[in-house]
Design a protein around this nucleic acid. Sequence first.
DNA 1: CCCTATGTTCAACGTTTATTGAACTATGAA
DNA 2: TTCATAGTTCAATAAACGTTGAACATAGGG
Lengths: 125, 125
Amino acid sequence: MSRTPLHPTREQIELPMVLDCLSDPIRLAIVYQLAQQERVSSELRCGDFYALSGKSNLAYHFAKLRECGLMLTRVAGTNRFMRLRREDLDARFPGLLDAVISSAAKDADRLQLLSDCEMVAADRN
Amino acid sequence: MSRTPLHPTREQIELPMVLDCLSDPIRLAIVYQLAQQERVSSELRCGDFYALSGKSNLAYHFAKLRECGLMLTRVAGTNRFMRLRREDLDARFPGLLDAVISSAAKDADRLQLLSDCEMVAADRN
DNA sequence: CCCTATGTTCAACGTTTATTGAACTATGAA
DNA sequence: TTCATAGTTCAATAAACGTTGAACATAGGG
């Protein structure tokens, strides 16, 4: 396991890659949940998303989210804590992330977004 | 040639499909150019985009843009006039289209966006 | 030390995607 | 009618994508 995964610099974040990353339902759900978590200013672990897919598939999506600059991974022991790159994204593409998040919230029932209770349930597991 | 291509209703427009559509550089350039054209409240023909790719490839991208609900095609003689579905998109995903357009404008040099002169040049051809 | 928990990496697979050129359709003009 | 123009459709190709399970790496707890 590499110590700290590579992330692009703020200027290296590209619009098409970000949009492509957000276009996958699982990745959109991950980003959405990370955005919800921002309000409590804490991070989430990979295992918090097992309700969405298997861990190997999640690792694949996490890598995509990191490579395109949407999220940041911090290694702590055997855990990886992740959070949105809110400041970088707002600087590069003002209003974009919020528009996507609130659009996703409007369609929460169509998109397989994890509710808070599902998150807690996955957490208990 | 079918008389009028099928378009999804406003409610059928899905966020992941829209984001995926916008994630392709050619389609993003098309949408960007259509957004510029909104200011003059006129439409654009398929041939106005020949600078971006060949016409068969453009027809493929136009179909994608229609199917995901981003644009509308009106048949007039041998021409097809296209415009953004601004009202529907703003109703479904408030602020999203504008955020994408202005983000694209900021990165105009990285993204292969057609400038106005290139549009005119392609038009003369 | 061994065992478990947490994630990543790899190979394999089937699917979808973007791109190309050729064939086709339909309209309008001469 | 004939010809040119504007776009679509089709078939073929190569590349990228998402998903799966097995193997691997690493850290912490007994």
